[in-house]
Simulated assay, not measured.
Amino acid sequence: MSTTHTQDTQAAVMVGEKDLAGPGAVFCPNPKMTLWNAHPKVFIDVGTTGEGKCPYCGTVYRLEGGARHGH
């Protein structure tokens, strides 16, 4: 996982195939987040569109290489 900044200065977490917790999903909070700002664990689909946003904290997750159509 790595972090980049989007045009609106919101950080985006770049995730690779090894970071997926199932078929095209990541979970938030991710292991690199500190415990004090944790929220309930949610799974976010990044495989369909290549990007997903956490409904709790607003963290944007982007799949390196874009969407994984057909997976």
Score class of each variant (00 low, 15 high):
His5Gln: 10
His71Tyr: 14
Pro29Met: 08
Tyr56Val: 04
Tyr56Gln: 07
Gly70Leu: 08
Phe27Met: 08
Ala12Gln: 14
Phe43Lys: 15
Phe43Cys: 06
Met1His: 10
Gly66Phe: 08
Phe43Asn: 11
Val13Tyr: 00
Thr49Lys: 09
Ala67Ser: 15
Leu35Gly: 07
Leu20Ile: 12
Arg68Gln: 15
Gly16Met: 02
Ile44Arg: 03
Pro55Gly: 12
Tyr61His: 14
Gln7Arg: 08
Val15Asp: 02
Gln10Lys: 13
Arg62Trp: 05
Tyr61Phe: 15
Asn37Lys: 01
Gly66Asn: 12
Thr59Gly: 03
Phe27Lys: 08
Glu51His: 05
Val13Ala: 07
Ser2Met: 03
Val46Pro: 03
Glu17Ser: 05
Pro55Thr: 03
Ala67Ile: 08
Asn30Arg: 06
Ile44Tyr: 04
Gln10Asn: 14
Thr4Trp: 06
Cys28Tyr: 02
Cys54Gly: 01
Pro55Arg: 09
Trp36Cys: 09
Gly24His: 01
Thr59Tyr: 00
Gly58Ser: 09
Cys54Arg: 00
Met14Asn: 07
Thr4Ile: 15
Val15Ala: 07
Thr48Phe: 00
Gln7Leu: 13
Lys18Cys: 06
Lys53Val: 15
Thr34Gln: 02
Arg68Asn: 11
Phe43Gln: 11
Thr4Met: 14
Thr3Val: 15
Phe27Pro: 04
Val15Ser: 02
Ser2Val: 01
Gly24Tyr: 01
Pro55Lys: 10
Lys53Pro: 00
Thr4Tyr: 07
Val26Gln: 02
Asp8Met: 10
Glu17Trp: 05
Ala12Arg: 15
Asp19Lys: 02
Met1Trp: 03
Gly22Thr: 07
Gly22Ser: 02
Glu17Cys: 00
Thr6Leu: 14
Gly50Cys: 13
Gln7Ala: 15
Val26Leu: 04
Cys28Leu: 02
Thr3Ala: 12
Gly66Tyr: 09
Met33Phe: 06
Val60Tyr: 02
Asp8Ala: 11
Gly65Met: 07
Met1Cys: 05
Cys57Ala: 09
Ala25Leu: 13
Ala21Leu: 11
His71Gly: 12
Cys57Trp: 08
Leu63Asp: 04
Thr59Lys: 06
Lys41Asn: 04
Asp8Tyr: 10
His69Phe: 14
Gly52Tyr: 07
Gly52Pro: 11
Met14Gln: 10
Tyr56Thr: 09
Gly24Thr: 01
Glu51Val: 12
Leu63Phe: 06
Val60Trp: 06
Gly50Glu: 10
Val42Phe: 03
Gly50Phe: 03
Leu20Glu: 13
Pro31Glu: 14
Ile44Ala: 05
Asn30Trp: 15
Thr59Glu: 04
Phe27Tyr: 13
Gln7Trp: 05
